[in-house]
Design a protein around this nucleic acid. Structure first.
Lengths: 101, 101
DNA sequence: TATTTAATTAGTTATTTGTATAATTAAACA
DNA sequence: TGTTTAATTATACAAATAACTAATTAAATA
């Protein structure tokens, strides 16, 4: 839901977490090491990102590994597309077989 | 700046205002007529949208006409693209002369 | 010029939010 | 099994936010 997505994105620490996860999965501890902020605060930020489905998490033994959810980002982009007037750039792309080039 | 954009988008009334302006320009009064909310509150929402450059405004006599700023929406979409791994879909589109179809 | 209309600015208040510390859960291991 | 490590949950509090009413600005017009 877009409400939770925009809520999650309305914080620079959370946006920074996404930029970290963009480069690869990371545990909660690895993420919190990148910030001057308590672990519980980071945990809370991760929770909001998860509520927005922007990240997913998976327990690995003692650790919790977080991953970015690219699908949710695509859906968010789609929400923005609603505002764009019809234009060639957005029409379904015509795919030409590679052999033609 | 993305900070002000996400701040502006993190409110359902402001998102609704964008959806109204998507259909065409409107005065502050026309916009506030669509809400069960005081005029000053709407004025404040419009101010935040303007700070984020998501809308522009122009005085027309006694009225203030608001317009959606599609360019800012494009820039926001670009911000999201940063997260997407390189893929064919995002590479610059190869344009084929119409005569080929 | 006095009044009406459109909109914003000023000031207030209840709610939400971001952060911290303390307490708890759960896994690893000596 | 007792201790350490990783992470979350619980709780509290200051700061930010969204809403309101009242006051102000500015344009139109009787």
């Amino acid at each position: 839901m877009m409400k939770s997505v925009f809520k999650a994105l309305n914080d620079s620490s959370r946006r920074e977490i996404l930029e970290i996860l963009r480069l690869g999965d990371a545990t909660a501890g690895e993420i919190s090491d990148r910030f001057n902020m308590s672990k519980p605060s980071i945990s809370h930020h991760l929770d909001l990102l998860r509520q927005a489905d922007l990240v997913s998490s998976k327990k690995k033994g003692q650790f919790v590994v977080y991953s970015i959810n690219l699908l949710a980002l695509d859906e968010t982009i789609s929400w923005f597309q609603m505002f764009k007037p019809e234009s060639i750039a957005e029409k379904p792309r015509i795919r030409i077989p590679l052999s033609q080039y």
